[in-house]
Write a protein that binds this DNA or RNA. Structure first.
Lengths: 153, 153
DNA sequence: TGGGATTATATGGGCGTCAATGGGTATGTT
DNA sequence: AACATACCCATTGACGCCCATATAATCCCA
């Protein structure tokens, strides 16, 4: 599987280390399996992360915005200048930068949520609430969620 | 046959393992025959499952949404983080995650129901009742059932 | 075509490996 | 020296792999 899926709850130890879930590590390209990039989510108080390869994809998305719009500047500033690369140690753990922990309100535990081509890291309770809220929004449009899940090839 | 059909009743052993019915295993693509994805059914207290290929389809569809829209996040949260991948061992068994067992009320036995491109896993009694209910609903609309059964491809 | 032999499936259990976690120590930067 | 970070080693529990058995299905040949 080459997608970030499922959710995991991991502890942050005294040294600030936390394990990147094993299944997430396997999604990272073998070449750069000891490095991930992290940045503040634009829309939620959470941290987003992915392998270094994904950066290009993000760049492309931003490039598709209207170059002269305010959004363009806002997104490119918010994302590119805020990106942090982090190393993963031999045991599969990494350090969450202090600034990002503050932004997400993370203290002793980190909840990892697969999002396909990237993942999110939440303070556990906030993460749970976000899942519920987002599901509630979608169920208002039952049809579209069902379509997404059951549509035939 | 490349569809999930028929129904089966299998036991869950002490370790929590349960056999995926042989005919279901044969539906999985040879490439990823040792992995399935599971998620909570939207409409019923049951678990739905399928091969990973289907997930990639869904990923593609979500990826085509507007990257910066709220829908994009809602879909990817509700789908990717709720999906659980499970490995199938050499004997064709897999583990049903605790959270999903709770959701479906499954304890010692699991009833598998083929649904074409995917399958459902039910607590046996609930599954039986669901079958009866849905048949009853169909018969109420005989006309549509007849159409369904007689219509040629 | 009957009946034994072979194969497949569902199920049980032992055991090694890996993932998550904790802690000591070396190395390095300021 | 003081702090941060990476490497090494240890522990625990979960999971995957291997082997084994019973029942069911299939095959094969006289």
């Amino acid at each position: 599987m080459d997608l970030f899926v499922s959710k995991y709850l991991n502890k942050i130890d005294k040294k600030g280390r936390v394990s990147l879930p094993s299944s997430f590590r396997n999604v990272l390209p073998k070449a750069n399996r000891n490095e991930i990039i992290l940045y503040k989510s634009i829309k939620t108080p959470s941290i987003e992360g992915c392998g270094v390869g994904r950066l290009k994809e993000i760049a492309k998305r931003i490039n598709n915005l209207d170059f002269f719009s305010e959004d363009y500047d806002d997104f490119s500033t918010s994302i590119f200048s805020e990106i942090i690369t982090t190393n993963i140690d031999k045991e599969g753990r990494f350090l969450i930068p202090e600034e990002l922990k503050l932004y997400a309100g993370i203290k002793t535990e980190a909840a990892f949520f697969g999002q396909g081509h990237y993942f999110q890291i939440w303070e556990p309770k906030k993460g749970l609430k976000n899942t519920e809220d987002s599901r509630r929004r979608l169920l208002k449009e039952k049809k579209s969620l069902r379509m997404m899940l059951t549509q035939q090839k």
